[in-house]
């Protein structure tokens, strides 16, 4: 292609082309290096020949071209967070967490020389973009290191049971203060907004034992309730039974007295009449009773007392009656 076309119109066209190309390239470079954009979430730090000149807010800005002025955009409005002991793989409607554990971050010693597994997050915001950019190297690592050392320090100062429960808020608060002090000592230009403890659990190997204490508490309550249940089942019943016994006794008593009164009333009545004519009454009563007693009796043997030598033969086996 080139070989065929170069011969006739070489000189002038080439010069013109070069000038045009150079001009286009120069203006493209000029334009592309003269403007920069700053997002609402950011501030931009502008350096002139490497030296800090100004901080620009959101919008479109002009800068000296060809790298004379450089801009660094820093997200100063965004709250950033770091996770310790766990990782979010994908945040979203259904956040996915990494299954792995990070013992090198989360395992720590408590003040009573026990071991505990702590997961937490920190939230921070860059509040001085210039300091953030130029005062410290490897800033994310620095933040993580300090956060780890803060939590380690505070957990190491407390008993495991406090760490697992009541001391959470005080650890969070003190960690925030400690981190802010330390990091501002480095002039990192950030502010820790919050430290949030997440999962605090005993290490894997002893979790079962910790849970067993909870289970034991449940067992204890269950046993106590069983005792109460038996008590509640039996005692009201016993009270009722006691009532029954007493009522029965009352009934017996009443019956006994009533029967006595009845007997006596009849006796008295009869006696009154008896007194008026004792002999007759006595005999009458005797005959009446004998009659009543013998009325229904069958096969009764009657022996004459004069027949002294008669020995009555009685069929002792079954039928009543002896000789006939």
């Amino acid at each position: 292609m080139a070989e065929r076309n170069i011969t006739p119109i070489r000189g002038p066209i080439k010069a013109a082309t070069i000038v045009v190309i150079v001009a286009i390239v120069a203006s493209a470079v000029l334009l592309s290096t003269s403007f920069f954009m700053v997002d609402q979430t950011e501030q931009a730090v502008v350096l002139t020949f490497g030296k800090y000149t100004k901080t620009a807010e959101a919008g479109l800005h002009f800068k000296l071209p060809f790298g004379i002025q450089k801009n660094y955009n820093v997200p100063t409005q965004v709250i950033q967070s770091e996770q310790f002991g766990f990782r979010t793989l994908q945040a979203g409607r259904q956040t996915v967490y990494d299954d792995r554990s990070y013992p090198e971050e989360s395992v720590m010693l408590t003040g009573d020389l026990n071991i505990v597994d702590v997961e937490w997050i920190i939230q921070y915001r860059i509040n001085d973009p210039v300091a953030w950019l130029f005062n410290a190297d490897d800033r994310d690592k620095t933040i993580r290191d300090i956060s780890q050392s803060a939590i380690n320090l505070l957990v190491g100062d407390r008993a495991i049971l406090d760490v697992l429960g009541p001391a959470r808020t005080s650890i969070e608060e003190e960690a925030r203060i400690f981190m802010n002090e330390t990091l501002s000592g480095y002039g990192l230009g950030i502010q820790i907004i919050g430290v949030r403890l997440q999962n605090i659990v005993p290490p894997q190997g002893v979790q079962a034992a910790f849970e067993d204490v909870n289970k034991a508490q449940q067992d204890m309550n269950r046993l106590i309730n069983e005792g109460k249940e038996a008590y509640n089942r039996e005692i009201p019943k016993a009270r009722g039974e006691a009532d029954r016994i007493i009522q029965v006794a009352r009934g017996y008593g009443a019956e006994r007295v009533n029967v006595a009164n009845g007997d006596v009333a009849r006796f008295k009545a009869v006696y009154e009449e008896y007194r008026k004519a004792p002999d007759v009454t006595r005999d009458r009563l005797y005959y009446e009773v004998m009659e009543e007693v013998f009325k229904d009796a069958e096969g009764v043997t009657l022996i004459d007392k004069e027949l002294g030598n008669f020995i009555p033969l009685m069929n002792l086996g079954g039928q009543a009656g002896g000789t006939r």
Binding site: D212, V213, A216, R222, L223, I224, G227, A230, Y231
Partner: peptide
């Protein structure tokens, strides 16, 4: 845990 369980047993026995 043992203390809890045994306390529970004791309480139950007490109730019984």
């Amino acid at each position: 845990a043992q203390a809890f369980r045994s306390f529970g047993e004791g309480k139950k026995a007490e109730w019984l």
